[in-house]
């Protein structure tokens, strides 16, 4: 004779054993706040270009977005992530007779005139992301060209290192 099914088992209350999501949400909120702090304020205004290997420095200065160019061993470029315009070729940088880079000067003059056309105040400041391997004579050509185009305040982008 078969036993009748237990009535206790039938009516036993099944407790739910779910995940405690409250504490996990708290943790995620903290991580979120941390990341917001990291990407906010001044640091997020400029990202290091993937086309240059920046030098490291102990200098601590705030980032300020202005006209920005890239200098790497292949030439001088507009600071754009996709298809940046070449402002000076590798040959121009290596040519010992070249003192002023014409393409860069034309670009900077164009930027200056465009700002004036928009009614913006011309501050004459430029940001350069220069590769750490760039030789000094090539760097001077870029700096001299910026000075020639009336960009008097030059900011080099560097990786921050401990003093």
């Amino acid at each position: 004779m078969a036993f009748a099914p237990s009535k206790g088992a039938k009516h036993r209350r099944k407790d739910k054993e779910g995940l405690i999501l409250g504490s996990m949400l708290d943790m995620l909120t903290v991580v979120l706040l941390f990341l917001l702090k990291l990407s906010g304020a001044t640091g997020g205004m400029m990202k290091p270009s993937p086309y240059v290997q920046l030098p490291s420095s102990t200098q601590i200065a705030k980032m300020d977005k202005s006209v920005s160019i890239l200098v790497n061993p292949e030439g001088v470029y507009e600071d754009l992530e996709k298809s940046p315009k070449t402002l000076a070729s590798k040959e121009d940088l290596f040519d010992p007779n070249t003192v002023i880079l014409d393409g860069l000067e034309a670009y900077l003059s164009e930027k200056r005139e465009f700002d004036k056309h928009l009614g913006k105040e011309f501050k004459g400041s430029i940001t350069i992301q220069c590769d750490q391997s760039i030789p000094y004579d090539q760097l001077l050509k870029v700096v001299n060209t910026c000075g020639q185009a009336e960009y008097g305040t030059i900011d080099f982008v560097v990786k921050k290192k401990a003093a």
Partner: peptide, 10 residues
């Protein structure tokens, strides 16, 4: 990578 500015005046 934390980046910074190195100001240079010609």
């Amino acid at each position: 990578t934390e980046i910074s500015m190195l100001e240079y005046l010609p």
